[in-house]
Nucleic acid binder design. Structure first.
Lengths: 121, 121
DNA sequence: TCAACCTTGACACGACTCTGATAGGGTTGG
DNA sequence: CCAACCCTATCAGAGTCGTGTCAAGGTTGA
């Protein structure tokens, strides 16, 4: 059976990332290859795909690694995802009122109360 | 009728962000208040809500502003959103095969071809 | 009028990100 | 055996982020 895994150097030559960056991407949890028995990183088709897609994101959309990591976090932390969704809900519609999440409504009430008080600190 | 708008200083005292940061948040497009005729920023309930939610995101989830901006971009740029989704698709399932987006499949084929070639640079 | 606000613009600083380079040492394969 | 690779760890440097502060000037309201 043919060899299915690339070493870091081979992968580097195939995808344009330097070996240094491949190690960095692993450290950041973005592209995490398996390891051989002796500890060598092993890159397969899956990892090459990820690396290509990542390079594409940076080149075409000027996306930072931290932002891709954030997308990962959003996928993994539903509570975070919900909180961000809640924040986004407050940004889109300037005038129209539409059903907001419950806690937004009471925050709103709180602020209406605050706005009614005489500016005293 | 009562005053419905706060100046930057008043808003600052209400939400915990410094005036400097309120200007920065506006510059980053995260919380953009309206303006009075003479150019003063006017913060209303909507903006106070956004500011609170933003502070919450930072305090509870240690989210950077750039990351929230990214969430905004995702909402506004469908192409970016699709690209990120594509990348995420390659990250989740280690062994199981499941229907991937079309271009991922041909990328995969391309790499399989590459893997079959004799490592020549 | 005048104090207390507001505006924009700029400089500055610590912390962090991204990336290369280098050092000391293990693995592999002909 | 030994060249060519891999590993971890560390330093370094340019760039960005988040934030404070200061300067020069306009607005507001008692």
């Amino acid at each position: 059976m043919m060899q299915r895994w690339l070493t870091i150097g081979e992968a580097s030559r195939r995808c344009g990332w330097s070996p240094r960056m491949l190690r960095y991407l692993e450290q950041e949890g973005l592209v995490v290859p398996g390891r051989s028995e002796s500890g060598y990183r092993r890159y397969g088709i899956r990892e090459l795909n990820q690396l290509n897609a990542l390079a594409e994101l940076r080149a075409r959309f000027d996306v930072e690694l931290a932002e891709v990591e954030f997308a990962l976090r959003l996928r993994r932390e539903p509570a975070l995802s919900a909180a961000v969704e809640t924040w986004l809900a407050g940004t889109s519609v300037p005038e129209a009122e539409q059903p907001a999440p419950a806690w937004v409504e009471w925050e709103q009430l709180k602020h209406e109360r605050l706005l009614a008080t005489p500016t005293a600190a």
